[in-house]
Amino acid sequence: MVNILIRTIILYLVVLFILRVMGKGDLSKMDPFQVVVLFMIAELAALPIETPDISVFTGLTALLTLLLLDVVISSLSQKCQWFKNLVNGKASILVEKGVINEKEMKRLRINFDDLSEQLRIKNYPSIADLDYVILEANGDMSVIPKPEKNPVTREDMGIQPGNEFLPLIIIADGILYKSNLKKLAKDEAFLKAQLSIQGITDYSQVLFCFSDETGMFKIYPKSESTKGWDIQ
């Protein structure tokens, strides 16, 4: 029993190592190749845990071979476009300049029900509103509406945007994020002064505090009410 526990810990650490080496970039792509590799990693890691006859070393060899293949194929895909197309496939245009590409839809075995469903999910109930619908290589559907159907932006309205900051966590579960406070050019004295106005004397009394894109602090104290306070 303890052996299984130790084997599980070893393989967990190996999978963690593999996912870290693969990197966020690889994981976020989730193209068909990536999905297959991730399924295989899960299966290969589980095999030596479930089957004590198989040595951990055997599992390790398979997992590390998959990692190397994945990294090599990712690197080649980055350097060579035709190789990328060969491994991942290409995006398919289903609607081009408002015209439905029926041939491409048939080739991809997508019917109008599927297309309408996906468009509804993307918040575009009418195909007539769309300029382009693209089925990406990873299976996601990208939608580009006609210019007249695009949402109005600040630029369209001639509104000058103010200074915008990256929203940052200042306190979470009573723990102060000093580096984030520093990034906002504020110090603890300022924060404590603001908290004391709300009757908060210690960070442990704060459930969550963050600065929004305008630089305003939002404070959610630890209490039954989750209503927050704003501090400029």
Partner: peptide, 12 residues
Amino acid sequence: SLVISIIALSLI
């Protein structure tokens, strides 16, 4: 990543 994975597999 390539170097790390080559080293890891080479060790094995």
